[in-house]
Design a binder for these strands. Structure first.
Lengths: 112, 112
DNA sequence: CGTAATGCTACAGTAATTGTAGCAAGGAAG
DNA sequence: CTTCCTTGCTACAATTACTGTAGCATTACG
């Protein structure tokens, strides 16, 4: 089992509408959130390794996102250290994994 | 045809790695970006209508995101006014449309 | 002209992010 | 038990992004 963050009520912006997608969209629309899930897709990473994978993003935001993502139930801190996706987080990952393929086609259409 | 924004040099953060996903992840990981795509999924909206749909988000950011999204080729400003998704933008939308269903399950698991 | 809609911009205040530094705790030698 | 290294995590000032409110230029309809 993994450590649990105390259940806080850090509300997500989109919650106001009551529609869960909005909450999710808001949560994922924060800096480094999508990227973190992406980097964790294959295997767990230690906080330092994650930082390296994320272009040396500042530990402050990373830590903030990690906390939010943990409270959302997408990410967990393993016993032996290292952040990994929960089963739910893995599902989420698979949901937007096709983004990878899309991005490739995007670049080719995008000129550059 | 729709208006075109001048050619792009607004670099996206993730581009540094050369991997297109990173660029995409960075672009979509900005405030209101995902939400805008989401709100446009069905039909085009005028800038004002979009603002309303997005919880009265400030026009400054909306305009900024809209410009970025247009430069990326996901959104376009129609002749008769109103923002809509390009074919490419629609593809992108479909890519993370399953997020909707996921969000529902997320809420139920999320205890609340 | 008056009214209303469009896309879009200015600008001050506030919140989020960056970058650098460092702490406490846990091993693994020595 | 001290030294060294790694872990997750925090402090804090500087910078950047976003918010909220106001308003401009343009177009269209009487």
């Amino acid at each position: 089992m993994a450590k649990q963050t105390g259940s806080k009520d850090r509300r997500v912006r989109g919650s106001r509408t009551g529609r869960p997608v909005m909450a999710l969209l808001d949560l994922l629309g924060r800096r480094w959130a999508l990227r973190i899930l992406w980097e964790l897709r294959d295997a767990p990473l230690t906080s330092r390794a994650l930082r390296t994978a994320c272009d040396e993003a500042s530990p402050t935001v990373l830590q903030a996102r990690l906390t939010e993502l943990r409270e959302a139930g997408f990410v967990e801190l393993g016993d032996g250290g290292g952040y990994g996706l929960t089963p739910l987080g893995r599902e989420l990952g698979e949901t937007f994994m096709p983004l990878h393929r899309f991005a490739e086609r995007w670049r080719s259409k995008s000129g550059d």
